[in-house]
Design a binder for these strands. Structure first.
Length: 714
DNA sequence: TACGGGATGCTTTTT
DNA sequence: GCATCCCGTA
């Protein structure tokens, strides 16, 4: 595609060509607030990119006056590329990123205003958990009595609601747990400030705080961002909402895009009223509905419509598709997870055999834990697959260790990272020594690393003193080296000088060889970073910590079946979709089942999942599933019943027909496992059968009318 | 201080 | 059923 010269006049019709009237209107309505209600597959990304191209190419808006916020880094990148194709390299100067990445950029510039330094660290969920545990220890709270994970969640929620520790104390004195959470929150924030670190929620929280307390700073950004765009507006939380409001308040050129039916993040603080109340917040707003779906067959779309219609709390909207009817939705009743996996494999192979590609197929599940059964089966059947999300590259121990070294060096105050690596590899700096150093640091108001620099003054043994001195000079040396080196060169130095790589090289364990490979992979990542931009170590760290696994893979589409959670699939589309585990307590998930809101959000998730499919949708459920090593029987998901029967083609092991039991038949009992029928007694409701189990349970008499037995094929 | 064995508790979903 | 963490032992 030809890249246009920046000064050349761009023909407006080239930007809007091929759009339907609503889409065209959305592109050309550039002034004032605009709400685009975009159903699944309605070409929303295309509208967004063309709208921005229109601003740049036709309205002659400068790129640095445009802000566009997306849900993932990947979609930001994609959108940027698409705009570039339309208007050329100028597009690079736009701010196009996630909320978090945008806030990092702002906070790097404004850190001093908040009493932070601009080399601050960003704590991820695990660091966060470590810090919270430390605070609980300091405050003498029993971690067995008060679950740190729950406190972490409560603190995160408070930040999303823009509550400071003080405000949380005032509002939440209702329960003991809440007031403890507020105390830990306070200590935690103090700790973060002292180690010059923000957690994910802080990035937004502090930016909002800055803008609400410093009118001059806010005005600078209001004057900069003349045109604002927010994608997935239905999934913004209170803090994000406030941030957008503040920025848009002056010029009010705010375009938000969303679909309340696709709101799936309420559990992490997203507030659907942000989109529902847009008209109230901006009475002069233009509202455009995009209801034509360009993605799916009408069968798939009608099924999705039928399911979502069961939600009471929604605005009526009906998507339609001019695509053909397509195939029916296949619903498969599996015996168990293995059988379900076998079904998926058979259908994948069928698709490939008919000339399709592995990469056309995607398996969607409710929870990451479900991926294992499918993965094992894929492995066995030699089907190439790729799991997105779940345990990411950056969660691996060796990667976290190296990152902790880098964080320590980039931000010497970062005690969380320092504690992680101080004795990795082993340096004979043990628990007791650390404790004393922490106390010493605390008493003299030093950071832990500073305290280590003055280890002679702390009262630790001669051996420990020597070990700490050595460690301290290692870190100082590395710190002094970082200037002038690329990130890659620097990481090489870290791996070498710390002895970290050697630790694994001298090991003969299989898994340690794997770790070495991962370290090599990390260097590939740094090389890519160095090539792209000549950033600092802090830039690299910020970029990687805000990157999720989903963002990593974009350009090269591997020819493999993709596997991910339904949440992760939002915004994506695939020719063939397998929705597995469609059972009560799995989907909808047990923890969302007791409230109407919970169920409705699960239904939104179902709507999202169904509408990912372009051509063919398979839904499967297990009549029996082992969870925690225990056999469980679940009813098929209620969402299945909500799809009109005409759209469905059923197969598999339907549990409705009572099987005919005969001696010699192999059956499976929910608790005792498989066995052979050895005797019969009575009939109909009173029928009892004797089963000799393969397990140590021996022979037992069972009434099929009371216990759900499965007949196994042959 | 390092390692191994056993108990424990866990499963939503993510920037 | 598995990974993590805790505690006991060398």
């Amino acid at each position: 595609m030809a890249v246009l010269h920046p000064t050349s006049q761009i023909d407006p019709s080239s930007i809007t060509s091929g759009l339907n009237p609503e889409q065209k209107l959305a592109v050309e309505t550039t002034e004032g607030p605009l709400l685009i209600i975009a159903g699944a597959g309605s070409g929303k990304t295309s509208v967004m990119t063309r709208r921005i191209a229109f601003l740049l190419g036709v309205r002659k808006v400068e790129p640095w006056n445009i802000l566009a916020i997306t849900f993932t880094n990947k979609s930001a990148k994609e959108m940027n590329e698409r705009v570039r194709k339309l208007v050329g390299d100028r597009a690079q100067d736009m701010w196009m990123s996630t909320f978090h990445a945008m806030c990092v950029k702002i906070l790097r510039r404004e850190a001093e205003q908040l009493g932070y330094e601009n080399n601050f660290s960003i704590l991820d969920a695990q660091d966060q958990s470590a810090a919270i545990k430390q605070c609980m220890l300091d405050l003498n709270y029993d971690m067995k009595k008060f679950d740190p994970a729950i406190l972490q969640w409560k603190i995160s929620s408070a930040k999303n609601e823009l509550l400071s520790p003080k405000q949380m104390k005032q509002t939440a004195s209702s329960t003991l747990l809440d007031s403890i959470a507020a105390n830990v929150y306070q200590a935690y924030q103090e700790k973060l400030a002292s180690i010059n670190a923000f957690d994910f929620d802080d990035l937004i929280f502090h930016t909002v705080h800055l803008f609400s307390t410093r009118q001059d700073v806010l005005e600078r950004y209001q004057e900069k961002f003349l045109y604002l765009h927010v994608d997935e507006y239905q999934d913004t939380n209170r803090a994000q909402y406030q941030l957008v409001r503040l920025l848009a308040d002056k010029h009010r050129n705010l375009c938000v895009v969303g679909d309340s039916d696709q709101a799936i993040y309420r559990w992490r603080g997203a507030d659907i009223s942000n989109i529902l109340n847009f008209e109230r917040d901006y009475p002069e707003a233009t509202i455009i509905k995009l209801e034509q779906n360009y993605r799916s067959t009408s069968t798939i779309l009608e099924a999705a419509n039928a399911v979502i219609a069961h939600n009471q709390q929604r605005k009526e909207k009906r998507l339609w598709s001019a695509n053909g009817q397509g195939e029916k939705i296949s619903v498969y009743a599996a015996l168990d997870q293995t059988d379900e996996a076998v079904y998926v494999i058979a259908k994948v192979q069928e698709h490939v055999g008919a000339g399709g590609q592995y990469r056309d197929c995607t398996v969607l599940y409710r929870a990451n834990a479900q991926s294992r059964a499918i993965e094992e089966a894929f492995l066995q059947a030699a089907i190439p697959y790729k799991i997105l999300g779940g345990l990411t590259f950056y969660d691996r121990r060796e990667i976290r260790d190296v990152m902790a070294y880098l964080k320590t060096i980039a931000n010497p105050q970062d005690e969380i990272s320092l504690l992680r690596i101080v004795n990795v590899p082993k340096r004979n700096i043990g628990e007791g020594t650390i404790r004393r150093m922490l106390d010493f640091a605390h008493d003299h108001e030093l950071s832990l690393l500073e305290a280590m620099g003055r280890v002679e003054e702390a009262e630790v043994g001669a051996k420990a003193t020597a070990a700490i001195k050595k460690f301290y000079s290692l870190i100082v040396d590395l710190h002094d080296m970082q200037e002038g080196l690329s990130v890659t060169e620097f990481v090489e130095e870290v791996l070498r000088k710390t002895g970290y790589r050697e630790m694994y090289e001298t090991s003969h364990k299989e898994e340690d060889q794997n770790r070495l490979e991962n370290l090599a992979e990390l260097l590939t990542v740094t090389r890519a970073f160095d090539r792209r931009r000549r950033g600092t170590l802090a830039d690299f760290l910020a970029e990687t910590s805000l990157l999720s696994d989903l963002d990593k893979e974009s350009g090269k589409t591997e020819n493999a079946v993709h596997m991910m959670t339904m949440h992760a699939s939002k915004g994506l589309e695939f020719p063939v979709v397998f929705l597995v585990g469609a059972e009560e307590t799995i989907f909808p998930h047990a923890r969302s089942m007791d409230t109407l809101e919970g169920i409705e959000e699960e239904r939104n998730l179902c709507y999202v999942a169904i509408t990912r499919a372009r051509e063919k949708l398979h839904i499967s459920y297990c009549t029996e599933r082992s969870i925690f090593g225990q056999l469980q029987m679940n009813d098929p998901s209620r969402f299945l019943e909500e799809i009109p029967a005409d759209f469905i083609e059923r197969s598999g092991h339907d549990g409705h027909v009572t099987p005919h039991f005969t001696i010699g038949l192999t059956v499976r009992h929910p608790q005792y496992g498989t066995g052979v029928i050895t005797d019969l007694n009575g009939a109909e409701e009173d029928l009892s059968i004797a089963i000799t189990f393969h397990s140590r349970h021996g022979t037992k008499w069972v009434k099929p009318s009371l216990t759900k037995l499965r007949v196994l094929d042959s």
